[in-house]
């Protein structure tokens, strides 16, 4: 599909009466483009190589991983058995999934309705509140981590899912993303729905949410990835080892004296699969959502 679209575009370029830029006159087109393709290929290979190394490494023995064997081996199941025997893989996957899914649902709900509220019921006071909230983007997490830990400890909420997700629900970035995309929401539709007697909340739920699918997809990708991959805060708040998430499980490898690199690569691969799948599935909507939001 990619090839077809670019071919069409290319034909159009040839037909266009502009002609090539003066500097490159006389040089064949494919030669002029060659450095671009070579450069892009090098960057693309460099980007994918560590990931390929990870995938192949998961199927190889430890010496083969270090020996930079680039072909898949037959050690996948042995690595899996070793990983399950050494670590609570199921528990870590469950905690990570729970945290990431709940954070994503809560963040999308809270931030999208806020972004919609800021834009559709726009007023001077709300603008002021928005610029105040945007300041929170400048607060590094490092500067709030200690008091947050103390607060949750006081409430007896250490090791709780609630404490893991609560700080990640409302982010200025997501509110801004939804506010920007609400800008393109047609006002006529809104008025028409009001006349039809739909209440403001239901207008949001039944009309805004379905039309803003690509923004929701972009927000979901960003939030899910951040939540799934978050390491520092879960490490701080999940004091007991049995509540550990996938990144924490992997991090524990560094404590071992002898590392089995095949098992390590498998753990790293398992931890990466959910975010990669989410990204690859929602990739197009993600790009559209970001583009729509920054117009």
């Amino acid at each position: 599909m990619i090839v077809v679209t670019s071919l069409v575009v290319e034909n159009a370029t040839v037909v266009r009466p502009l002609g090539p830029a003066p500097a490159s006159r006389g040089v064949p087109r494919w030669l002029r483009k060659a450095p671009t393709y070579i450069f892009l290929t090098i960057v693309a290979v460099a980007s994918v190589y560590p990931l390929y190394f990870m995938v192949v490494g998961a199927t190889n023995t430890s010496p083969d991983v270090l020996g930079s064997r680039l072909l898949p081996g037959g050690n996948l199941f042995a690595n899996f058995r070793a990983l399950v025997a050494a670590q609570d893989l199921g528990g870590a996957l469950w905690h990570s999934s729970l945290n990431a899914v709940l954070t994503t649902i809560a963040a999308l709900a809270v931030c999208s309705i806020a972004g919609y509220g800021f834009e559709v019921f726009h007023s001077k006071g709300k603008d002021r509140v928005m610029s105040l909230l945007l300041l929170a983007m400048m607060i590094p997490f490092a500067a709030t981590m200690i008091p947050l830990f103390r607060m949750f400890a006081q409430f007896g909420l250490l090791n709780s899912t609630f404490a893991v997700i609560l700080p990640a629900i409302s982010t200025p970035f997501l509110i801004l993303l939804f506010r920007q995309s609400a800008r393109s929401f047609p006002h006529e539709v809104l008025e028409a729905a009001r006349i039809d007697g739909l209440s403001e909340f239901w207008i949001f739920v039944r009309i805004f949410v379905p039309t803003m699918r690509s923004t929701y997809a972009a927000a979901a990708v960003i939030t899910f990835m951040n939540a799934w991959n978050n390491f520092l805060w879960p490490r701080v708040i999940l004091v007991a080892n049995r509540y550990q998430t996938m990144p924490m499980l992997i991090s524990n490898f560094r404590a071992g004296y002898v590392i089995d690199y095949g098992v390590l690569m498998l753990a790293v691969l398992i931890a990466s699969l959910p975010t990669m799948i989410v990204f690859l599935v929602l990739q197009r909507s993600f790009a559209n959502g970001i583009t729509g939001a920054i117009k």
């Binding site: 990619i2 994918v48 490494g57 975010t275």
Partner: peptide, 30 residues
């Protein structure tokens, strides 16, 4: 507009972002 395999390049170059910081740290360590 005239570049081919755009989607392929874009996906390949963005793909590292789907990996967690902890995961890639261990891949680089290896």
């Amino acid at each position: 507009k005239t570049l081919r395999f755009k989607g392929l390049f874009r996906t390949a170059i963005f793909l590292p972002c789907a990996v967690s910081l902890v995961s890639y740290s261990f891949v680089f360590r290896t």
